[in-house]
Design a protein around this nucleic acid. Structure first.
Lengths: 142, 142
DNA sequence: TTTAATTGATATCAATATAGTATCAGTTAT
DNA sequence: ATAACTGATACTATATTGATATCAATTAAA
């Protein structure tokens, strides 16, 4: 069971790269090279993040992408939702058998509780937090 | 993002069915019909659970499957591991970029912490617990 | 003003995972 | 002997994931 797929993973890294150069336009190419993310794949992810208003872009020479939203307001939960769909434990459990038979709906409660826990844990992890963690780690190292 | 796939979902339900008739052999066919699980699909899941020592089987007429392990010791975490592989946040994050660059390993910690939370939450949900929840719900209803 | 570096928008492809079906051999209660 | 079962395996279809390719439009700068 893989919690983060490649696109979410890459998106997090790309956002960290953009957040580190806040206010500047950074090209997809440079992000791809520096972070070893497949170029065209990354392009798609960046487009998707523009649509979700996380970043902005500028076309042409010296163009690129720039972070728009405050890094502290971008959570991993949000990125998972964008690239992997809303966190849900099991589509079917809610419908057919379980909710048809009222007794079995008890499973639903158990499972939605966990859903909440998972979501709130990922909610706490924002791009801003990850950035500060990175900085802290770098301080210690030097 | 789907946390439980059909096989885990079906396996949980099948185990609940077997746990409710502890000590008896229950045929795959009856479980499939009563719980609306595709028969051949269920057969595969049951075989897998035998391999993992959760249940036993008896061949021939009046044969079927019987729960072997104490329901309280069968957790959803265990079933996820069997049918969806061990819970891991992101394979690649640990390897390539992140761990190549030591600084970025900070992400790994954040992410492994969540992995632990997710796992321990699902650990708490055992077949035994779900059974008791079901019984309790049935009591209230009648 | 041409050119090269860039994004926008799509289309396509391959690999893998998920969900489900089919078949046949072997076992066993009746 | 037979019908109800499991064991084992092979197969198919579809969706998801990961990745690549192409071409038009834009723009800074030579």
């Amino acid at each position: 069971m893989k919690v983060l797929t490649k696109n979410t993973d890459y998106a997090i890294r790309a956002l960290l790269a953009l957040a580190a150069k806040k206010g500047c336009y950074v090209s997809a190419k440079s992000i791809a090279t520096e972070h070893d993310i497949p170029y065209q794949f990354l392009r798609g992810l960046l487009q998707e993040m523009i649509r979700h208003d996380l970043i902005v872009s500028k076309e042409g020479v010296q163009g690129g992408f720039m972070i728009k939203k405050d890094p502290d307001t971008i959570s991993v939960t949000q990125l998972i939702e964008i690239f992997q769909g809303k966190v849900q434990v099991s589509e079917c459990m809610f419908r057919k058998q379980i909710c048809a038979n009222r007794a079995r709906c008890v499973l639903r409660h158990e499972i939605m509780r966990i859903e909440q826990v998972v979501q709130s844990e990922f909610e706490k992890v924002t791009i801003g937090k990850l950035m500060r963690d990175l900085e802290a780690a770098n301080q210690v190292k030097s």
